[in-house]
Design a protein around this nucleic acid. Structure first.
Ligand SMILES: [Mn+2]
Ligand SMILES: [Mn+2]
Ligand SMILES: [Zn+2]
Ligand SMILES: [Zn+2]
Lengths: 145, 145
DNA sequence: TGCGTAATTGCAAATGGTTGCAACAACGGC
DNA sequence: GCCGTTGTTGCAACCATTTGCAATTACGCA
C-alpha cells in the first residue's frame, strides 16, 4: 500500500504523533470502498478497538483532510472520505437523486480556476471539488410528476 | 418590493399557505442585508412575534429555497440567505479567511455546465453555486506563517 | 359567514458534528 | 530504558439543525 505508507510519512514529517487510533482510521479508509461514511469508519474502528470515540474519528479525518491524506466528499447530507491518490486526482459529481458519486478529471476545472484568478484575484479551493446534480440514469424520462 | 410580491405569488400558486410566520420571514430576508444568517432572521422574527420558533424559521427558509424564492449561501460553516433576484442572478465566491462573499456572474459557469452535460449527461445544479477560496485581500503577501 | 380538512406550527426530543477539559501516551532527550 | 513535555484521547457537554407529534390555523367550499 504505497499511499498508506506515504500518508504515515506525511504525518511524521509534519510532527504529528502516530497513535494507534490514527493508524487504525487510516487503514480503514485505505482498505474500504471509495467514499466511506464517517459512521462506517467509526463502526469498523470500534470493532477493532472498543475505546474508540466518534470525536477521535472526526478529529482524525479532519487532520487527514488538512494534510491532504484523505479527500472529503459530500454525498447527500453526509461527509464521506477516500484516501487521496496523487496520481489519480479527481473531483466528484454527486447525483442528488441516487447519491451516486462519479469521478471528474481535474482538467475540467482548470480553465475556471484560471479565469477566477485573472478576473478577480480569487484563488478558488479546487484541490478537491464536488458538484451536485442529476446523473444520466436519474434524468427525468419525460415531464413532471 | 416587486420580488417580495412575486415570492408571495409563487407561494400561493404552488398551494402553500400564507401564514404570518412565512410572511414575516420573507419580509425580514427581503429587507435585510444580503446574505442573512439563520440566527439573524430568527432574532428579528422573534422580536416581531415572540412565539416564533427556530424550527419554523429553518422550515420556512428551506421551503423558500426549494421554491427558488431565496438563495442559500454557505459562508464559513453557516448557511445564509438572500432574496432571489431573477434579473440579478449570480453565484458566490466566499473567502475562507475573511468570510467575505463576492458575487460572480452566471456566465462564468455556463461553459462548465455545457461540458458536463455533453461529456457525462450530468446536469449540474447551477441555479446557485458557491465556491470557496481566498480573496485578493487575504492572499498571503509572501511566505508561510 | 361557518366547517372540515389538510397543511403548518410550537415544542421537545433527537441528530450529526464540535469542543473544553482532565487523564493519558508518543516520542525526543537524557 | 526512563522522564518530561506536549500533543492526543475519551468523555460529556454543547451547538446548529432536523424531526415526530399533537394542537392550531389557513383556506376551499357549502
Ligand atoms: Mn472518488
Ligand atoms: Mn449575493
Ligand atoms: Zn443518479
Ligand atoms: Zn478574504
Amino acid at each position: 500500500m504505497a499511499k498508506y505508507e506515504e500518508a504515515i510519512e506525511t504525518l511524521r514529517k509534519k510532527g504529528h504523533r502516530l497513535t494507534p487510533q490514527r493508524l487504525l482510521v487510516l487503514s480503514i479508509v485505505a482498505e474500504g470502498d471509495a467514499h466511506m461514511g464517517v459512521d462506517d469508519v467509526f463502526t469498523r474502528a470500534k470493532a477493532a478497538y472498543p475505546y474508540m470515540d466518534i470525536a477521535t474519528v472526526y478529529r482524525t479525518l479532519h487532520l487527514y483532510k488538512d494534510l491532504g491524506v484523505v479527500t472529503e466528499v459530500a454525498i447527500g447530507d453526509r461527509l464521506h472520505y477516500e484516501l487521496t491518490d496523487p496520481s489519480g486526482r479527481h473531483h466528484h459529481m454527486v447525483c442528488r437523486m441516487c447519491n451516486g458519486a462519479f469521478n471528474l478529471g481535474p482538467h475540467y476545472l482548470e480553465e475556471f480556476r484560471r479565469t477566477l484568478i485573472s478576473d478577480f484575484s480569487f484563488e478558488p479551493d479546487l484541490e478537491h471539488f464536488t458538484i451536485t446534480g442529476v446523473c444520466s440514469d436519474c434524468q427525468p424520462a419525460s415531464g413532471k410528476a
